[in-house]
Design a protein around this nucleic acid. Structure first.
Lengths: 216, 216
DNA sequence: GTATTGCAAAGTGCATGCAGATTGATCGAA
DNA sequence: TTCGATCAATCTGCATGCACTTTGCAATAC
């Protein structure tokens, strides 16, 4: 747990982490007193943290009701995956145009190094690499607002694609798709990079569809 | 002032409105006690409202400091306009593909009717029409998450393009650009609609550049 | 047996109060 | 005159308490 910032900020990070990592499942109730006890604070900072998490879209709040970890409808989940694909495509396009030489090199190295994880079938480690890889794309776009949007969207999607690399053959496929994106970026081919990134997310979307909850 | 929801929600709307409409200017301090007095509530709901506004990006908060109406740097403002152009392009593309017959007809009618405002030079009214026009595009994309992102981004940009229609000839130009978007959508030409929407926002961005504040 | 009403337990919404941080002014020294 | 320190006023961060709302259960009526 990061020790910077105010109590509320720490709680926001902690709770967001628990949601994103699946420690708390979608649909779970978050009542204020329990959280207050758990974090050893009063209800006031808890309420502020919940308000912020609500604004982030990670939990849903209604008047006089406990906060509930967002359990998006299938339709909304689909819209998020589609938006994610569009955002990734934007990042890939802009990255192809704007990445510095160092950024390009680092992206390629990161990608090349990951082949080892694919062969080893190291799901956990590959997942970490995958996060890092995509973050490089987001940063490479050199657009702070796009970065914020794509980061937030990814956080909200996280609970729904946890097990994606457990699916057989997904690791190798992911690696191959990353390769296509990297190649396009190295050639500064924005259109190709965008398309590769778009279809990459589309495929992840299909792989995750299993975990969606039925519409309300 | 809308009378639904909790005290906090009403305050969030009220304060957000004041910021977006320019009643409170970027850089202005929002201290909790003044707001509490102004809305005749205690500081607790004020703090929650401020936290939410902070999450929305409309105000900046630092520990033990008063909240400040966001005064984005020129660089960040630029990134928001670029992101806005991308988002509008997405909406236009998807609208061209997905709008129902009724939605297309309504969009065209709305657009056609606005020519009257252009000739009359009715800046205020055209501004309202413009908002409505773009909202139709956002809805027409039939993607709730994209809708949320584009709506939030627009709200954050609002303070910086207030006077856009005051610039000479801007009304007619805007109408013409809208026309290009409408035509493309009526023909279900996604690529053309996207491009038209993208350049439309780009031009608004140029028109607004004057109002940006110098970087920090 | 089922439906409805009443009640109690639990939880949220907000007010108030206190402790700590920040800021600005004033006073003293160089 | 200017720089620095100290202190008071002000404001934020959080704890606590009270009122209202919701909810589950139980008792009673049908």
């Amino acid at each position: 747990m990061i020790r910077t910032g105010t109590t509320v900020e720490q709680m926001v990070r902690a709770i967001a982490d628990m949601i994103v990592t699946g420690e708390i499942l979608p649909g779970a109730k978050l009542d204020e007193v329990s959280l207050a006890v758990r974090f050893d604070v009063s209800r006031t900072p808890v309420r502020e943290a919940l308000r912020e998490l609500g604004a982030m879209g990670l939990i849903a709040r209604e008047p006089n009701r406990s906060a509930v970890v967002t359990n998006v409808t299938e339709a909304y989940l689909h819209s998020m995956f589609e938006a994610m694909a569009e955002l990734e495509a934007i990042c890939a396009r802009l990255s192809a145009e704007r990445m510095t030489v160092d950024e390009r090199r680092a992206l390629e190295l990161e990608h090349r190094a990951s082949v080892r994880l694919v062969h080893a079938g190291a799901e956990e480690e590959y997942s970490a690499h995958n996060t890092e890889f995509h973050t490089r794309l987001y940063r490479g776009a050199h657009n702070d607002h796009v970065f914020e949007m794509v980061t937030q969207t990814r956080a909200r999607l996280a609970p729904f694609r946890r097990a994606q690399f457990r699916l057989p053959g997904r690791l190798a496929k992911s690696y191959e798709e990353h390769g296509r994106i990297v190649t396009a970026i190295m050639r500064a081919d924005a259109a190709a990079a965008g398309q590769a990134a778009y279809s990459h997310v589309e495929i992840v979307s299909d792989a995750s569809a299993v975990f969606a909850t039925p519409g309300e």
